[in-house]
Nucleic acid binder design. Structure first.
Lengths: 238, 238
DNA sequence: TGATTTTATTTTGCATTCATTTTTTATAAG
DNA sequence: CTTATAAAAAATGAATGCAAAATAAAATCA
């Protein structure tokens, strides 16, 4: 009956909403598992979230499941319709634009903060991955490139040393991750080269600990990323 | 038995976590009411959240209450200790610093976005309140001053026209609102004058639609606000 | 046949119940 | 009188039960 193909995503201990990691409680574990389950795209966009099936899949009763659903709704991953259950939240082009802008703002902040406190060792690590990324870029290895790209942005956020920022950022990132924009990105070679140059500028500003400048670069960088991901004439639904 | 002094905070329909406004469902209403109840300081810092008492107070069973608690924990307002219930989350000086920085980052973003899309009418409204605030400043009317100050920052965020940003901002603002830093702020007259000058600069940059510049000013403005709120030598718990 | 009403089934929201764990109170020992 | 131990009370986490609502299915009529 249950047409869901989940295979126990236990171990993936994603650090998410900061104050909620009640390992040892069913609800806490379930929250993590369910979030991954949805983020990884096991449910179609706009699809109903099948309570019964998920209960059977995770071997729990409805109570902890519904608690987790409420949290995921607060995070914006699903939406709750009164008396009509939960649905996977669809991202309109406008939503995506909003998310990218906020992510851009948070990365801009991360860059600024990172300039204040990043150690030489941390910077060296970012630089190392940057060169690795350049390597992938030359070889047109999209998978490797993308992986490094993610890592760099993640490291900058981490270097900011602000747990609240990290948690907020992770929450928004989860919502975007459902969208397969990577495909669009990878296709546009011009964008790839441009992105590479932007990353050079990021590294440079970070090296000089030029917080305000880095802040600007990162925001624009995210804007360009969005532009590349969005079809040219996509309505912004304003 | 219940030493809680709540008097039905119904109507206050605060727009909060965007995807959760299930008016008509008990859980949704309760979430809003409970959040206000905690934000308004009806529970001591670090105090246990009394499930039983709250159930009686709101006339509901534990199920919807606990659902709301899970959401509030995800928002960071309370923390859940396995088998030991929920407690009102205390804000360490480090937490406060983190929150202010992220709020600063979000306001910086708001300023940048506002410059892109703010209308002359919207700007005029902000300018009007700014002058009103100056009036209060001259008269040393702290209450009026503070109110205007809040309004201006709120309007800038609104002018950004990004619902995701608004929701994220509101979530963090709620956590800070528990702290009575306003008292500290109001006491420091030097800071007040400085803040006034910073607001002049904000207005000026916004008038010129100088997004990047405004972004910087707003972040620094928030930093200074924090500095004024924090006792000089407060440990940053790094 | 196709649309519409009626009935059955499922799903949802919330209350209640139950087994554990924690906290409190009472009791005993040093 | 203080500290340690044991028993009682309360709380928490999760499962189950139940009424109302929504969806699906069947029956009726045009």
């Amino acid at each position: 009956m249950s047409e869901i193909s989940l295979d126990e995503h236990e171990g993936a201990a994603r650090e998410s909403a900061e104050a909620v990691r009640p390992s040892g409680t069913l609800h806490g574990e379930l929250l993590v598992a369910l979030r991954d389950f949805i983020v990884e795209g096991n449910l179609e966009d706009g699809a109903r979230v099948p309570e019964r099936a998920l209960c059977e899949r995770f071997n729990i009763s409805r109570t902890p499941l519904r608690e987790a659903l409420k949290v995921l709704a607060a995070e914006g991953l699903i939406e709750l319709l009164p008396n009509r259950g939960a649905r996977v939240r669809e991202l309109s082009p406008a939503d995506l634009r909003e998310l990218f802008d906020v992510m851009g703002g948070l990365e801009a902040l991360a860059g600024r903060l990172a300039c204040e406190r990043i150690t030489d060792a941390e910077f060296a690590e970012i630089e190392r991955i940057h060169h690795e990324m350049y390597h992938f870029y030359l070889r047109r290895d999209m998978h490797g490139y993308f992986h490094c790209n993610q890592a760099i942005h993640q490291l900058i956020v981490a270097a900011a040393g602000n747990a609240t920022l990290t948690a907020t950022y992770a929450g928004l990132a989860g919502r975007i991750r459902r969208v397969r924009y990577s495909a669009n990105l990878a296709k546009d070679r011009d964008r790839l080269g441009e992105a590479m140059r932007e990353h050079e500028a990021i590294l440079d500003a970070l090296r000089r600990r030029a917080g305000s400048e880095l802040s600007d670069i990162l925001f624009v960088h995210l804007r360009n990323k969005l532009k590349a991901a969005q079809p040219p004439g996509a309505s912004s639904d304003e």
